[in-house]
Nucleic acid binder design. Structure first.
Ligand code: MN
Ligand code: MN
Ligand code: ZN
Ligand code: ZN
Lengths: 137, 137
DNA sequence: TAACAAATGCACTTCCATTGCACTTACTAT
DNA sequence: ATAGTAAGTGCAATGGAAGTGCATTTGTTA
């Protein structure tokens, strides 16, 4: 078990107050968040800083982007020891049409998809839409 | 084999010059198009008209939307006799990381995706990214 | 051909994403 | 410790895509 400080150092980015705060915010979230979610949580911080922080996290494979089809990019922490850097986005994402939340189904891996001859598959984005467990009962 | 006029009448929308032109433009395209692709093809027409035309086509299941993760919505003609209206988007889409084009793999159907207990799957968006056949050879 | 409904064009708006530049903070080498 | 440098932050502005209100034009139907 490593501290957040150790993680950031490992990824070769500086430990700053904002980064620690944003990281902690993400850890506590069970769902993928938008930039404005973060913005609302940190009203005193500047949008740009939040934006660039999340972009840095993304580059360093601390978070991954999720395009759930709502048109707004969402982000979620990568799992400890995930291989985001090698094969992008292995797991599938679920978007609830009722509560509008998107969650990582980290242990539901994306099946191998066949593509026609001549096509080379590099990675796959799979979003299932429907009703989440909270909303279905 | 039906004419475009007959198709539009079948869908209960009026036959207009713009609609015929846009439909013909889409037929000739092998790849999914953005609104600005259409805009560039019809510089004399107003953006709003093109926008509302494609929206009408979408409502009437003449075209379907494709979210390929680029952040820009793309559209492609539905196949003759497709069942877009019943089960949305059965086939998968391929987005080329090289030429940036997106194509329908109409005869590659999306496999059944398992979701955890409590989750209800209503539809699925699956985009494979990689290198297309034109770019790989 | 008159009357009505639908389609089009123009202007404007909103929302998210992104950038340039000045200023501040953190690290490093003396 | 301190100065110098690189990275991080805040503010202001921009750009692009999507969407809407309203006046005008076009198509349909009685
Ligand atoms: Mn995820
Ligand atoms: Mn398609
Ligand atoms: Zn829900
Ligand atoms: Zn290509």
């Amino acid at each position: 078990m490593q501290t957040i400080e150790q993680l950031l150092e490992l990824k070769n980015i500086r430990v700053t107050a904002m980064r620690l705060l944003i990281y902690k915010f993400l850890v506590n979230k069970q769902v993928a968040v938008t930039l404005s979610d973060i913005e609302n949580a940190f009203e005193k911080a500047d949008r740009t800083t939040l934006y660039r922080t999340i972009k840095t996290f993304e580059e360093k494979d601390i978070v991954h982007q999720i395009d759930d089809g709502t048109g707004i990019t969402k982000y979620a922490l990568c799992e400890q020891g995930c291989s985001c850097d090698i094969n992008k986005d292995l797991h599938l994402h679920f978007h609830c049409n009722n509560c509008n939340e998107t969650i990582c189904l980290t242990d539901h891996k994306i099946p191998k998809i066949k593509v026609p001859d001549g096509f080379v598959s590099e990675n796959v984005n799979l979003v299932v839409k429907g009703i989440c467990d909270k909303c279905s009962r």
